[in-house]
Design a protein around this nucleic acid. Structure first.
Lengths: 233, 233
DNA sequence: TGTGACTTAAAAGTCAGACTTATCTTCGGG
DNA sequence: CCCGAAGATAAGTCTGACTTTTAAGTCACA
């Protein structure tokens, strides 16, 4: 699922990163390089590589004669996929899920509108196929199959928008959708209304109806927000 | 303006990063660690730290027995503020500016709507003050003063939305606005209609009129898009 | 007592060299 | 023609010595 970790420093990161985003080392905490390298049983060179990466994420700041200081939350590069993953895996997962869903509700309708004018024939076909897949998996508790098509649907919309900033949010949306399926109580089959909306969006994009694609997608994301309000108020 | 570079590796990054995002080393290019450290006249340990950071931005991938490979553009972490700065400073600045402006047009209206319900009294006051500052600097070629208030206005909206993902886009918006003022031909004073819209947004937020704040902000960002279409078609 | 210059020490930063490990390539045998 | 072993290559790791920055403490002088 996650990219295979290459190198020692990556393994250190996978442990230290979540510890920081998870509040185990709250902002203002000061760590020391040699203590860290002792703790993780790696050489100083490996440790500095890990710290450099954390520094590039604005999670920490390293200063001479002081040490490695954890920065306040508002400094963090919250769009970094790795940071998002760490935070989604941690304690403030609900808050994070809400932030990201609000972001979706702002971005996806606009992206869908653009997709309606920019999507290639292949992308239109892919959308339709995804929508069909969603319908086919919408009954009888086939959650995994449904999720797979749902993710691919939204990824395709974002990519088809032709805007690279939107396209790059595909992974974020995938995380959010997966989170909803796996970590929230989801006894029932997906909302039939939502499934229908996806079918209609695929239709609107195929017919180059930007306004309709945008509006329908807005309904989808608003639905996701309401769902969140119900499940985690 | 930019954060002061601390350390040798950061100086290497400031040179190597733009070279990669600028296409000097196109995707697929393979660099070698020891050649790089020779070229930049730093030790290998410093060089690896720099490469680790580039790797965390998904600009390159380092593999044993192969070298450091530049990744295709769609892999890049385009939300990383440093990457954004490098790209804005490079050759594909126009394309980048357009992507970011489209992103703004998706995010800011939603953010303004949220700000109308969430802004504190201080934030409302700050908005009004910014709007007044914009009016005061809107005539007589006081572009710098205008820009300062404009940036602060949008920053405040994004922060007041209460959503950290939106708040984090403050720097991006600042870059875009600064880019418009500094790098595009801007002989004339700002569009009076735009100035008025800002005043009205401040008003709408103060009066907790979310729908109006959203719609007015949509007009502002659509104006920015049209401006871009005119200046760089 | 307060202030400013000087000293000290603590921590990160840098470098160089030796060694390890993964993996791509090549070559030889079946 | 395919497969497996051997070799070569470049990154990865570790260690120790040294440098640089800078926070904090100290002391003299006003």
């Amino acid at each position: 699922m996650t990219a295979q970790v290459r190198g020692l420093h990556a393994r250190v990161l996978e442990s230290l990163g979540p510890a920081i985003t998870g509040g185990e080392y709250p902002p203002g905490s000061v760590l020391r390089m040699d203590e860290l390298s002792k703790e993780f049983e790696v050489s100083r060179s490996v440790m500095r590589e890990a710290v450099r990466v954390l520094e590039s994420m604005h999670l920490v700041e390293s200063r001479r004669r002081v040490g490695v200081t954890v920065l306040p939350t508002q400094e963090w590069n919250v769009y970094d996929p790795q940071v998002i993953r760490w935070r989604l895996a941690g304690a403030d997962r609900p808050r994070q899920l809400r932030s990201l869903t609000v972001l979706r509700s702002a971005v996806e309708p606009t992206a869908a509108g653009l997709a309606a004018t920019n999507a290639t024939a292949e992308q239109c076909a892919a959308l339709t196929e995804c929508a069909i897949g969603m319908v086919a998996n919408s009954r009888g508790h086939q959650l995994e199959g449904y999720l797979r098509h749902d993710v691919e649907f939204h990824r395709t919309i974002l990519r088809a928008s032709g805007n690279e900033m939107f396209a790059r949010l595909g992974d974020v949306v995938a995380e959010v959708l997966a989170g909803r399926t796996h970590h929230q109580v989801m006894f029932e089959d997906p909302d039939p209304a939502a499934v229908t909306l996806h079918v209609k969006v695929a239709e609107a994009v195929r017919e180059r109806d930007a306004a309709r694609a945008e509006e329908l997608t807005r309904e989808i994301t608003l639905g996701a927000l309401e769902e969140l309000d119900v499940l985690a108020p």
